[in-house]
Amino acid sequence: MTPRGRGDLRARVSRGFRDYYAGPYRRRLARSARDEQDLLMMVVLAEELGVPNPAAFYTLELLPAVYGEMHAWHRRAGLERSPFDTVACC
């Protein structure tokens, strides 16, 4: 085995261990981050979901920023198409 090949193997083993130990935590953190984003989406689209939103003036200006996440969001919620009559993405 060449020195380079041995280094390669060591790096691969090390990454394997790291993934084995850190993987579950990473997934959990990813899910938490996603939940936070979903919450923001709910706040911004509250009115569309039938929840009166007294801050509509301010949530409206966030709509352009969350619009890009909308598709992934309704797919995650198990909905094939956007559930909103007025805000569609696909």
Partner: peptide, 26 residues
Amino acid sequence: TLRRAVPEHLTREVDRHLELARDAPG
């Protein structure tokens, strides 16, 4: 701002949404 984020064929949906928001409480 929304028009820049949204594909061309959906701009009418955007307008419809904003039209409804006009009368939101507050």
